[in-house]
Amino acid sequence: MGLEQFKNRNVGTQNYTMVDAGHSPQGAMCQFKQVVKRTFKGELFVGLWVTMRSMIKALFANDMHTVKYPLEKLPISPRYRAIHDMLRLLESGHYRCIGCGLCEKICISNCIAMDTRYDENQRKEVSEYTINFGRCIFCGYCAEVCPELAIVHGPRYENASQQRAGFSLFEDMLTPIDKLNLQQEYDGFGAVSPNADENIKQTPLAY
């Protein structure tokens, strides 16, 4: 191996290569020709026409792209990752969160915190749960890791606040009990795949 590569001390340029991007005119005549060509070719007028066409379309063909945001909203993808929702069990109405703490652990911006306790039914109960939305980067890991599909990303993306960090409590994100019938099953990050049943290994539990 030669030392050529070390002799170019202009670090950073070694990985670049020049590509031919056409020729610039050589000599006064060529330059003049180019000016004339460009002047009379009408490129500028093509530009004018394009914008005019857009204006005509916008005004008369109603081809307007503006969405009047607070008044109109675009439909969002089910995989969109906005403010979290806490889902309830459809049958009993009890919230699904079992307090396993996986979302807290996986959260890369460290914005989820939960306190748990031993409740009177000898179950693990979440006594407090917050997400610091000032920090949350909506990466979707929490929804993905949740074994119960309890924390999911909901469609509420309007989360601007006057404070740097808005905290959200468990109850704020929880489906209201009277709106249980409106609760949508989540099909975004971490949701059960449509063919999940096929992937399960059956065990001989006859009981």
């Binding site: 857009s54 379309k57 916008a58 081809d63 307007m64 792209h65 503006t66 009047k68």
Partner: peptide
């Protein structure tokens, strides 16, 4: 307005 229309905005 004109600029907006030319960019198909309102």
């Amino acid at each position: 307005k004109v600029l907006a229309f030319m960019q198909r905005r309102l």
